[in-house]
Every structure is written in structure tokens, then in C-alpha cells.
Design a protein around this nucleic acid. Structure first.
Lengths: 111, 111
DNA sequence: ATAGTATAGGTAGACATGCGAGGTATGCTT
DNA sequence: AAGCATACCTCGCATGTCTACCTATACTAT
């Protein structure tokens, strides 16, 4: 009790990660930064959420990983969307839109 | 694997239940029906989700319950929003709007 | 030199929540 | 008498996010 901060993502994390990787190969740490930037600091993705999610997405064949050197001259694991991952992203976006539509119907219901 | 049906609500269930009870006292079984109707069958609320959620909301002081007779002449537990529950509903709706806004920012990001 | 910070990766355990499967009981219809 | 819809419930599983912790490297400041 007492949650003034710590904005949480419900089940949207996978979709957001897939979307970011759809913009081009990118390593994990940078994914978290991008999500935070684009969402104007609303989402503050924790590493304990980030890395398990990336492994999950890779296990499911939606992302593939490759070690490369980052711009700052360090080793990073770069993720890119697979063909299946791209279809999955589309499916998740579709479902997200239906879901928010359904929620909107209920929230708009007047007395 | 193989999920053609069974649309699920992410973490919005509490908010939806609070919203339905905000329309007036209503018993649990009818809440599930209302949510399904209003969402045009998108949400199909299972009893194994419904009743634990109602008890959770009551425990937190957001709903209060009272046994009454339904229109069909049976015993039903009617739930109504407490004052604190109404504030909680407003907080959850606010957060939901911020969250969907943040997701939209990311989904709209172009390559 | 060395201490601190940002970058980059990771795991383990706790916790919440939605769901499937099962259970009880009543009233209405066939 | 059987079957179905209504109305309530619980248990245990699976999933997913978070806190907390760990390792290591590069850069910056003292």
C-alpha cells in the first residue's frame, strides 16, 4: 500500500518490446531506455522485467539475438524481430485495440 | 498454444467491476452478465475470476455487500460502491487513460 | 590510483491475478 | 425426473511483474 510511483505495464510488455525491435535491431538495455523515452517516462522498465521478457520472446521464436558491439564500444545482445514475431506483433496490436475498445464501451456506460 | 477464444482482461478487472457497481447495486452473477453484454461479448468473465475479485474488492473496502432477493426470486449478494471505492475507481480510470496514452505513443512510433 | 556512475548482462524468490475445474443449492421448464 | 439457468463458492495452476541481488566493463571525477 502506498503506490505513488512505479507505473506498471499490465500484459503489454511483450507487445511494446516487439514494437521497439520492429524499428530495427537493438540491444536489451537500449530497449528499456527507448520505451521510457517514447512514453515520456510513464513506463520505467525494470531489468528484472526486461531480461526475462526478452528470453521469453526469444524462446517463443519471436525475437532472435546476436552479440555485437554497441556504439559505446561494449558487448551487447542485439535483438531483431523474426518473421513470426512480426505476425505476433500484429496480432497483439489487433487484440490490444479490441480490448481498449471493449473497456471504453464499459467506461462510457452512463447511469 | 492454440488460443482461438477466451479473451482475457489484463489488470482491468477491478476497474470494470467498480464501474459496473457505480451504476447501482448489483449482484455478482449479474455483474458478469453486464460486462459481457456491454462489451459485446468481448469479455467473458469466468466465475473463477469473478468471485475472488469481488471478495478482494470488498476486503479492500471498495465494495460493500448485502444479501437481498433478486428479480427472479432468489438470494443474491448485492454489491455497491463505497465512498472510498468511488475514489479508487476514479484513480484507476485516470491511470488507465495515462497507460493507454503511453502505449499509443509507442505504437505510433514510425520507423 | 581509485572511487563512483552509467552501461550491459543476468538470476531467484515473492507476490498478484486470472483461469480451469470442481463443488453446492435453488427454481423453472420439459 | 431430468436438465438447464441462476447464484454462490474454493482450490491449485500458470503467468508475469517486481524487488533485490549479482557480475562485469568503460568512463569520469577526485
Amino acid at each position: 500500500m502506498g503506490e505513488e510511483r512505479a507505473e506498471l505495464l499490465k500484459g503489454t510488455l511483450d507487445m511494446l518490446i516487439l514494437k521497439i525491435t520492429a524499428l530495427g535491431p537493438i540491444h536489451g538495455y537500449a530497449i528499456a531506455q527507448r520505451i521510457q523515452q517514447i512514453s515520456r517516462d510513464f513506463f520505467q522498465l525494470q531489468q528484472g522485467s526486461l531480461y526475462p521478457a526478452l528470453h521469453r520472446l526469444e524462446d517463443r521464436g519471436w525475437l532472435k539475438a546476436e552479440w555485437k558491439t554497441t556504439e559505446t564500444g561494449r558487448e551487447g545482445k542485439f535483438y531483431s524481430l523474426t518473421r513470426v514475431g512480426r505476425k505476433q506483433l500484429q496480432a497483439e496490436v489487433d487484440n490490444w485495440e479490441k480490448l481498449t475498445g471493449a473497456v471504453a464501451l464499459i467506461l462510457q456506460t452512463a447511469e
